[in-house]
């Protein structure tokens, strides 16, 4: 299969087209072959020095192969940018959810301004203050509004509850050791999140912890439209 795929690409490349259109070329390969062919394709593209338009549902293929990603949903362009931009500055909840595995935690909450500064009210899960200057700036654009708070699993820190940092008190409900990483599932007041930690991360189901939100890693979206608020 591997050889046939390469020959198929060679058969197209030999006529030196100005552009290649590859429509899910690896979707019928098994996982191991797909990873191998992904590297091969990147290598071939580098050799050919020709533009490839590559259609895929696999966000890892998109991230690893592309110079620029166009994220589509139902035929509509959602975002166009480098893998880095699309991953780190998603323009709406669709892009945020689509890129990354495990996907970004998206928590519906309400922006409230208690003593003047906005805070995030997660209902039964409690309220989190905001210390992040950039997030504060963005939140001030949408006071007292229903929003969706987003945070990537690898960006959340697990801390003792005594630590007075922005975040939520949560309980460990499930631990998945997936080899290179441990995915820790946390729950509180009807909100569930996933946190990606190092392999063999020492934690027990039932542990009461704080899910801390570090500065510069938070995302905030309009609850109705799903669009990022105040994205620069």
């Amino acid at each position: 299969m591997n050889e046939l795929q390469k020959i198929a690409i060679g058969r197209s490349a030999i006529t030196e087209p100005e552009i290649f259109l590859l429509d899910e070329p690896l979707s019928n390969l098994d996982a191991a072959f797909r990873a191998f062919m992904r590297t091969e394709l990147k290598h071939l593209q580098h050799e050919f020095q020709q533009t490839m338009v590559y259609v895929t549902h696999d966000q890892i293929e998109a991230m690893s192969l592309a110079d620029r990603i166009a994220v589509m949903d139902m035929g509509l362009l959602q975002q166009y940018g480098t893998p880095n931009e699309v991953y780190n500055k998603p323009c709406n909840t669709f892009v945020a959810n689509f890129m990354g595995s495990p996907s970004m935690n998206l928590l519906p909450c309400r922006l409230t301004n208690g003593d003047g500064d906005p805070a995030l009210n997660f209902g039964d899960a409690g309220t989190s203050t905001i210390e992040d200057g950039e997030l504060m700036r963005r939140c001030k654009l949408a006071r007292n509004a229903d929003v969706v708070f987003g945070m990537r699993p690898e960006d959340i820190e697990i801390q003792p509850r005594e630590v007075g940092r922005p975040g939520l008190d949560m309980e460990v409900t499930f631990v998945e050791p997936i080899g290179p990483r441990t995915v820790v599932h946390l729950s509180a007041g009807g909100h569930n999140i996933k946190v990606a930690k190092d392999k063999q991360y020492p934690i027990e189901i039932g542990a009461k912890v704080k899910a801390a939100f570090p500065k510069g890693r938070c995302h905030i979206f309009d609850a109705e439209s799903g669009d990022a608020i105040g994205l620069e």
Binding site: K6, I7, G10, I14, E47
Partner: peptide, 12 residues
Amino acid sequence: RRVQNMADLIGA
């Protein structure tokens, strides 16, 4: 010539 080049490139 081009077939040989391409065969070398894709390693077949």
